[in-house]
Design a protein around this nucleic acid. Structure first.
Lengths: 84, 84
DNA sequence: ATGAAATGTTGTACATACGCAATATTTTGA
DNA sequence: TCAAAATATTGCGTATGTACAACATTTCAT
């Protein structure tokens, strides 16, 4: 597409919650461990395939992990009981 | 990633339901009209950005439009009342 | 039946996603 | 504190997503 949009993601939080290293997550997904780093830093966006695999891995909808709009912190969402 | 997986999609059905031409959908999404054709035919998968835009446009979760597993026809899902 | 709109096909070009390697820096645990 | 693990950085190679153009084929309304 024309201008590549920044896609916000909750990967660092989700990974932290489960105490996973990038290497461990990468292996579970079948990608290079550096790829996880690229994604977390926002160097580039995942392919749809990888996004679907991540969603399946974390058992969350894609939209809960990736969004065109900035995320509300999960801690705040949990406290208020409201989603985005 | 290693082998590029085939991602199944419900674009033709969704577009048919709303009586949209590819051109009209493409314009709503801000992409070339041929891109929609490529996606529907499975020539390639959309970027995550485009997938999120499509989901927003149709007001459906990404997983309802794209899946690593073949879809149950919507008609059958509607009849049984069960999802995938 | 005919012309217009929609869709399919082929080819070129470019940006981005991903792999892999090597090395630097930071964080962490014993 | 000090070594190991985790994370960051750079660079290079390949594959894929998207645009665009030109033309062929199919579908559809009148």
């Amino acid at each position: 597409m024309s201008e590549t949009a920044i896609i916000h993601n909750r990967l660092p939080v989700l990974r932290a919650e489960r105490g996973l290293s990038r290497k461990a997550l990468a292996e579970a997904l079948g990608v290079n461990y550096q790829t996880v780093g690229y994604l977390e830093r926002g160097d580039y966006n995942p392919s749809l395939e990888l996004a679907l695999k991540l969603a399946a891995y974390f058992d969350l909808p894609v939209e809960m992990i990736f969004s065109l709009q900035p995320f509300t912190p999960l801690s705040r969402m949990a406290a208020s009981g409201k989603g985005d």
